[in-house]
């Protein structure tokens, strides 16, 4: 058997008396796969993602990256948060450079080259010297994405990164993120409770029940929509149908308390 790239092996999590993930959770994620954890708010999907980053430890089971159990956080597994995602005291360019601050294997010159490269990639080169409070919320999220890429993350962990953006910025960043992921060949685990976002971005959507988190469905999106995700895809009947199907699943997952 070929060892999967990233794998959860029977992971559970308890915080004190609170079961966050009770039923052992096992999935494997292929290299360069874009996986979205979709579920009701507070269902435990974020906790599962944070375990990949080494920010939480499983109560039982293990998470393996390339066959080796993950330990504490390091630059190979980068995080992008919804808020406080960039440092306000550093300029846009300094924020991206900060991503490589603790990497001793890169020379100063290499770091500067990578910084400029990723600033260009996310379209922020012209805003290099601006402080984060002077750019839009969407740009601040791009700063965080560029910083994570510059740091050299193989796996990008994104916790509702576009949750605080308005609809248009959100759509644009989704298109860009998908393009970056395809070009840079990154494995992404992305947490959201937005069904459209999940279906548009993902190769694969894992639908979770409300807490304690249980997998309700594991849906292959690429098989149905293809790997390319232009903005127009949102208007197609295929997208619409899939979105509705996932939405129904999520409604079941949330239960009928609302």
């Amino acid at each position: 058997m070929i060892e999967p790239y990233l794998a959860f092996h029977g992971v559970t999590k308890r915080f004190g008396d609170l079961d966050v993930v009770a039923q052992p959770f096992s999935i494997s994620v292929a290299r360069n796969e874009f996986v979205v954890f979709l579920g009701p708010s507070g269902c435990g999907k974020t906790t599962l993602m944070r375990m990949i980053g080494g920010l939480e430890t499983p109560s039982s089971g293990a998470i393996c990256l390339e066959g080796l159990p993950v330990g504490g956080p390091d630059h190979r597994r980068g995080m992008v948060f919804q808020s406080y995602s960039s440092f306000p005291w550093l300029t846009v360019a300094e924020n991206v450079l900060f991503g490589m601050r603790y990497r001793k294997d890169l020379t100063e010159q290499q770091k500067l080259a990578r910084r400029d490269n990723y600033l260009e990639l996310v379209g922020l080169y012209d805003f290099s010297d601006a402080y984060p409070n002077k750019v839009s919320g969407g740009m601040r999220q791009r700063v965080a994405i560029a910083r994570t890429l510059a740091a050299g993350s193989d796996v990008m962990l994104m916790d509702e990164p576009f949750g605080a953006l308005d609809a248009q910025r959100r759509e644009r960043l989704q298109v860009e993120l998908r393009a970056i992921q395809r070009r840079d060949a990154k494995t992404i685990v992305f947490v959201t409770h937005d069904v459209e976002e999940a279906v548009f971005l993902a190769d694969r959507v894992i639908v979770f029940s409300k807490r304690p988190a249980r997998v309700m469905a594991d849906i292959d999106i690429t098989e149905r929509l293809g790997a390319e995700r232009p903005l127009e895809l949102r208007d197609s009947p295929e997208f619409f149908q899939l979105r509705n199907a996932v939405l129904r699943l999520l409604r079941e997952a949330a239960g009928d308390e609302e």
């Binding site: 980053g53 080494g54 920010l55 504490g72 956080p73 390091d74 630059h75 597994r77 980068g78 995080m79 948060f81 808020s83 406080y84 995602s85 440092f87 900060f98 991503g99 601050r101 603790y102 990497r103 910083r147 740091a151």
Partner: peptide, 10 residues
């Protein structure tokens, strides 16, 4: 978040 960003950057 700031603390966790720093940690994930090594």
């Amino acid at each position: 978040e700031y603390i966790e960003i720093a940690h994930t950057l090594g």
